[in-house]
């Protein structure tokens, strides 16, 4: 009986990485800025995105959204009220989006041409673990954290926080009643992702949205 060792040195998610690289090339040549929004369930990704889409529309920008959810299309219906094109991706139990799902849902999207968009937002499935491994071809990964979740979330989920390019604290209008310790939260985010840009926002009051929209505009021209 003979055995042999075959060296592979191959990425386990190579297929996803290749698909994502293809998507990234498409997004770049179409001139659309793509953002992947990740957070735990209940952070307020949809409310934040709703507000972002409305504000962008008000500024004459063209934005669209792909929304991941396990089973429902509730989020897509909510977001569509902003007037932006929105498409639901139902993962049917899978806890993250992958590049293949994104690619499939870009096909046959009525009325949407990538080249006509300024921004494409991909709202991931609410999960702070699994989405970190799956590149969707985005240029900016945004991690969201709400004041109701506790300041130590970044320390509990460093894999995802460390993979993000920007962080958004949501529901900042509830910081007082929740006893949210802002300093501790900012320190924790910075410990696991040194130097990351952080936005403190409220989709309800509009706090911090101007700064966020300015950032989006800056990133688009980069």
């Amino acid at each position: 009986m003979t055995t042999r060792i075959v060296e592979l040195r191959r990425g386990i998610l190579k297929k996803n990485d290749e698909l994502a690289a293809g998507l990234r090339d498409r997004f770049t040549s179409a001139g659309v800025l793509v953002l992947n929004l990740v957070s735990s369930p209940g952070t307020g990704k949809t409310a934040f995105l709703e507000r972002t889409l409305c504000e962008l529309r008000g500024r004459g920008k063209h934005a669209a959204a792909l929304v991941g959810d396990l089973e429902t299309d509730n989020d897509a219906r909510r977001l569509a009220a902003s007037g932006a094109p929105v498409r639901q991706i139902n993962t049917h139990g899978i806890c993250h989006l992958d590049a293949e799902m994104v690619g499939k849902h870009l096909e046959g999207w009525e009325g949407v041409a990538l080249a006509g968009l300024d921004y494409l937002f991909i709202e991931n499935v609410g999960n702070l673990v699994c989405p970190s491994s799956y590149d969707l071809g985005e240029r900016i990964r945004v991690v969201l954290l709400s004041v109701t979740e506790g300041e130590d979330k970044p320390l509990k989920y460093p894999g995802l926080f460390n993979s993000a390019d920007a962080a958004v604290i949501t529901k900042i209008d509830l910081a007082g009643p929740c006893g949210f310790d802002r300093e501790v939260a900012l320190r924790n985010i910075n410990e696991v992702r040194p130097g990351i840009r952080v936005f403190e926002t409220s989709a309800k009051t509009g706090a911090g949205m101007d700064e966020w929209l300015t950032y989006l505009a800056e990133q688009r021209t980069r």
Partner: peptide
């Protein structure tokens, strides 16, 4: 500046003929 920590790779396989 991260230099290691995100790897998710198959290093090698051992085959029995």
């Amino acid at each position: 500046d991260l230099r290691q920590g995100r790897e998710l790779e198959i290093e090698s396989i051992e085959l029995e003929d």
